[in-house]
């Protein structure tokens, strides 16, 4: 019985999602776990504070080829005799967790939103995940001897204890990469939407792309990313990667401010997991108000300047 956790440690400091996954795995295991990662990240010892006893790192391997990473994870799992494999439900994890599950004929909980339910007794552990685009939740039981869990980012608090992890370099053979990166095109300088904790979003109520300066200004003052509804992206008022909802990006930030968005069910499907939702709409009957924590019935063109002013004031006081 042992637990390993596969994480992507790209970037300058240890990503939050990686620390969270290690915290998750060690809480689930009730003790230190082995973390598996790749690439050239430094400072991996620090994962000890989140509950990693050991970190195995495959140097020189890139994130793109899920097949290579799957071999890495399965090899470490075999050496460690792992019965639980934790991944992150992010871009990298989505290419690895299902492959690992298929290779090991293991049950997968895709996008677990918390630790298993303790109250389940003999029925085995039940893991909760969102289904129907956040309109319902399901409890999943894994019946195979090995289980694979991919954890939805932002699901549990990161635990920070004492200790440093031993870092070992992986030396096995995971074959060549069949996928190569030709180019990475950076999109803007802003905060990438899926990682943003604060999001300011606007819809067709803004009337045209020329009015987005105030949406961007509010986002800047709050340190938020910007998003939009689907018609806004379809009409090319805003870039496609800002489109949130059922057919766009699904996000779960701490704060989602929706300006001039009606709150169609397909829009809500991508944002209803946000912790706090604020809705600004001139129509008091807009369906979005039913999903909101805070609401303002008013004209966006009058409300936005007031919000920007208040945000500036708050920033000046901090």
């Amino acid at each position: 019985m042992s637990t390993i956790v596969f994480i992507d440690t790209r970037g300058e400091k240890l990503p939050k999602a990686a620390q969270e996954a290690v915290s998750y795995a060690s809480q689930l295991a009730g003790g230190p776990v082995t973390a598996v990662t790749f690439g050239d990240a430094q400072g991996l010892e620090a994962l000890g504070a989140n509950g990693a006893g050991k970190v195995i790192v495959a140097r020189g391997v890139k994130a793109v080829d899920g097949q290579q990473l799957t071999k890495l994870v399965c090899d470490v799992a075999a050496r460690e005799g792992a019965t639980t494999i934790v991944c992150v439900h992010d871009n990298t994890g989505k290419a690895v967790a299902p492959r690992v599950a298929a290779r090991l004929k293991a049950g997968l909980v895709a996008g677990a939103t918390g630790l298993p339910d303790a109250s389940t007794g003999s029925a085995g552990q039940l893991f909760r995940r969102n289904v129907f685009s956040g309109k319902a939740r399901a409890w999943v039981e894994v019946t195979s001897p090995v289980k694979v869990l991919s954890v939805m980012p932002n699901s549990i608090p990161i635990t920070r204890g004492e200790g440093t992890a031993a870092v070992e370099e992986y030396s096995g053979d995971i074959g060549p990469a069949r996928i190569t990166v030709k180019e990475l095109r950076k999109a803007g300088s802003g905060i990438p939407l899926p990682e943003a904790e604060l999001v300011v979003s606007a819809g067709r109520g803004m009337k045209g792309p020329e009015h987005w300066a105030s949406v961007e200004e509010l986002a800047r003052e709050l340190g938020a990313a910007t998003a939009c509804s689907r018609p806004v992206a379809d009409m090319h008022w805003r870039p496609h990667h800002e489109h949130v909802g059922q057919t766009g990006v699904a996000i779960r930030p701490n704060l989602y401010i929706a300006i001039g968005i009606s709150g169609a069910i397909q829009h809500l499907a991508g944002v209803n997991q946000s912790k706090v939702i604020c809705v600004i709409n001139k129509d008091p009957e807009a369906p979005f108000f039913k999903a909101a924590d805070y609401g303002i019935v008013g004209d966006a063109f009058e409300v936005l300047p007031k919000l920007i002013e208040a945000a500036k004031k708050l920033n000046a006081e901090r």
Partner: peptide, 25 residues
């Protein structure tokens, strides 16, 4: 290897707190 044991609807949202437009700040 896995099965969904049960479903549930998310807890209902608490009431929305409305703020008058002229006090939007």
């Amino acid at each position: 290897v896995a099965r969904t044991v049960k479903f549930e609807l998310p807890p209902a949202k608490g009431a929305v707190k409305m703020i008058p437009a002229d006090e939007a700040g």
